[in-house]
Design a protein around this nucleic acid. Sequence first.
RNA 1: GCGGUUGUGGUGAAGAUGGUUAACACUCUGGAUUGUGGCUCCAGCAUUCGCGAGUUCGAGUCUCGUCAAUCGCCCCA
Length: 422
Amino acid sequence: MAENKFQAPRGTQDIYGEDISYWKKMEEIIRKQCNLYGYKEIRTPIFEHTEVFLGENDSSDMVNKEMYTFKDGGNRDLTLRPEGTKGIIRAFVEHKMYGQPDMPVKLFYMGPMFRYDRPQKGRYRQFNQLGIEAIGAKSPLLDVETIALGYAIVKEMGINDLVILINTLGDNESRNNYREALKQHFKPHLNDLCADCKRRYQQNPLRILDCKVDKGHFSFEQAPKCRDYLNKESKQYFDTVIKGLEDLNIPYQIEDRLVRGLDYYTNTVYEAVPKDDSGQQSTVFGGGQYDGLVESFGGESLAGVGFGLGMERLLDLAKEKKGITIEEEKIDVYVISLGDVNTYSSKITELLRNNGIKTEMDYQKRSLKAQFKSADRYKAKAIIIVGENEYQDNVVQIKDTTNKTQENVEYEKIVEKIKNII
RNA sequence: GCGGUUGUGGUGAAGAUGGUUAACACUCUGGAUUGUGGCUCCAGCAUUCGCGAGUUCGAGUCUCGUCAAUCGCCCCA
């Protein structure tokens, strides 16, 4: 009987029923907070030219092995967006938003991202992200603001035990010095490290540090620390970010090893994780500053900062903590019909709906009992009963479900009577 | 991409050592009550155990493959 001919592709999911209410609630909270912080919505395409996502010499797994890339009918090389920032930067430059008088341009977006990865709880091939980006100004205060916004959203979702893991990669000069130091340090140990680390050594030595395979290797303990290679400006910048977090009472923890998966970050990088850090897919939002991205897309040399927030993860956490509640669905009126009343029941239903009254009716000629049960399930405030007699006389029976009184009402007075009850 | 666990109706699930009507509960549908519900009682609802193949006289139970979920690794949101 019920044989499933198809199922949703691996790592994708259908959102329906009660979940829609949860998603709407979450989106409402996000929109409210973004508005409070001055971020405006932007909607960009779900796919872009593949080159948009390919940085020069990108070392991230996301870009190298997780992208859904395809050719369209015109032989264009396109990719389903694996993250939001690159598309936003493309739009920023394309529409010359750098010409706007008030900098930075503050944007947010919500929508699906696609990554070909092995699905797990909190990890999907199609998942939804909230992204925020502040482009066109470089300030530790702005870095702090983005964290504060993420934290405010999470908090309003009823999650109070997040901690911000934070680190700095320094500016270009600092980072170049550090990179050299790391290469020097790991050079003699290269043979002991995993294949990925060997690749990272060439492409992005910083990423060796958050390798989970080799983290036990003794060379990691002695590895030079980024903070020792910061120049004065970078150090001051980071100190201000930390001071900012303290002033705002946002719990943080400095993580020397945190470098993050995308290659474009500079200076501040951060990740928000639950304190009791249970699962592996626990990062709720993560981001950082990107100094060179706008320029690499052909725009001016402008800095930006932003984060991506996993909406499925946020909602999972909120449900777990019972942080948000949804209102139960209720209707105003349920129309019960008995016997042959032709289209009389749908005529009444339409009349009520046209008067702004949320109305349901029976479509299957079920038993009276079944129809009453439906009315209960819908939590109808009033029930209208029409049978052959009422149909003949152009009246209806109206029953108030709270005090269970019932009366005979003429067609013309139905709306008025119902409005009194609900 | 690698390893572990799991997969029975609309739902939750029972189903030692393979044995032939797939338990029980909830929901739902019909009836008791030919036009008044939420209680009660009765009846019905899986030709079939994710899908496919194999072993066997016989498989939901064993084997293999496959798909999916989940957990760990990896990676990240």
